[in-house]
Amino acid sequence: MLAEVLRQLPPRSRARPARQVRALDAGYAERTPPDPFAADRQWRSDLWWRRRPTGGPG
């Protein structure tokens, strides 16, 4: 949903929040290992974060 909001913003208004979101995404990906069973699960590319186990519920 956040990606859709960013796409709808004018380019000047989008630049700073887009950088912040990229930094948050990179930090999350760095702190969570890839799911070794992801290939066995049905997933959608827009829900990439579901392929990263966090150790929490879910």
Results as ranks from 00 to 15, higher is better:
Met1Trp: 00
Met1Ile: 02
Leu2Trp: 00
Leu2Ile: 15
Ala3Gln: 07
Ala3Cys: 12
Ala3Met: 06
Glu4Ser: 08
Val5Ser: 04
Val5Met: 09
Val5Tyr: 05
Leu6Cys: 07
Leu6His: 00
Arg7Gln: 07
Arg7Asn: 08
Gln8Glu: 12
Gln8Trp: 07
Gln8Ala: 12
Leu9Ala: 03
Leu9Thr: 01
Leu9Gly: 02
Pro10Gly: 07
Pro11Arg: 11
Pro11Ile: 00
Pro11Met: 04
Arg12Met: 06
Arg12Ala: 14
Arg12Ile: 02
Arg12Pro: 00
Ser13Arg: 15
Ser13Lys: 15
Ser13Trp: 10
Ser13Gln: 15
Arg14Val: 03
Ala15Trp: 02
Ala15Val: 05
Ala15Met: 07
Arg16Ser: 06
Arg16Asn: 00
Pro17Asp: 08
Pro17Arg: 05
Pro17His: 02
Ala18Tyr: 03
Ala18Lys: 05
Arg19Leu: 10
Arg19Gln: 06
Arg19Trp: 02
Arg19Lys: 06
Gln20Asp: 12
Gln20Arg: 04
Gln20His: 04
Gln20Pro: 00
Val21Pro: 04
Val21Thr: 02
Val21Met: 06
Leu24Asn: 10
Asp25Ile: 01
Ala26Asn: 04
Ala26Leu: 08
Ala26Cys: 06
Ala26Asp: 12
Ala26Glu: 08
Gly27Met: 06
Gly27Cys: 09
Gly27Thr: 05
Tyr28Arg: 11
Tyr28Pro: 04
Tyr28Thr: 11
Tyr28Phe: 15
Tyr28Cys: 15
Ala29Gln: 13
Ala29Thr: 08
Glu30Pro: 04
Glu30Gln: 13
Glu30Cys: 14
Glu30Met: 14
Glu30Val: 14
Arg31Leu: 15
Arg31Val: 13
Arg31Trp: 06
Thr32Cys: 15
Pro33Cys: 11
Pro33Leu: 15
Pro33Ala: 15
Pro33Lys: 10
Pro34Arg: 13
Pro34Leu: 15
Asp35Ile: 03
Asp35Ala: 10
Asp35Cys: 09
Pro36Lys: 02
Pro36His: 03
Phe37Cys: 13
Phe37Gly: 12
Ala38Val: 12
Ala38Arg: 07
Ala38Leu: 11
Ala38Trp: 07
Ala38Phe: 09
Ala39Phe: 08
Ala39Thr: 07
Ala39Val: 08
Asp40Asn: 10
Asp40Tyr: 09
Asp40Cys: 09
Asp40Ile: 02
Asp40Gly: 11
Gln42Ala: 13
Gln42Leu: 11
Trp43Glu: 08
Trp43Lys: 01
Trp43Leu: 09
Trp43Cys: 07
Trp43Ile: 05
Arg44Asn: 13
Ser45Asp: 12
Ser45Arg: 13
Asp46Met: 06
Asp46Gln: 03
Leu47Thr: 11
Trp48Gly: 11
Trp49Thr: 12
Arg50Gln: 13
Arg50Cys: 12
Arg50Lys: 03
Arg51Ser: 09
Arg51Asn: 05
Arg52Asp: 03
Pro53Arg: 08
Thr54Cys: 15
Thr54Asn: 15
Gly55Ala: 10
Gly56Asp: 12
Gly56Ile: 09
Gly56Trp: 08
Pro57Thr: 01
Pro57Trp: 00
Pro57Tyr: 00
Gly58Asp: 10
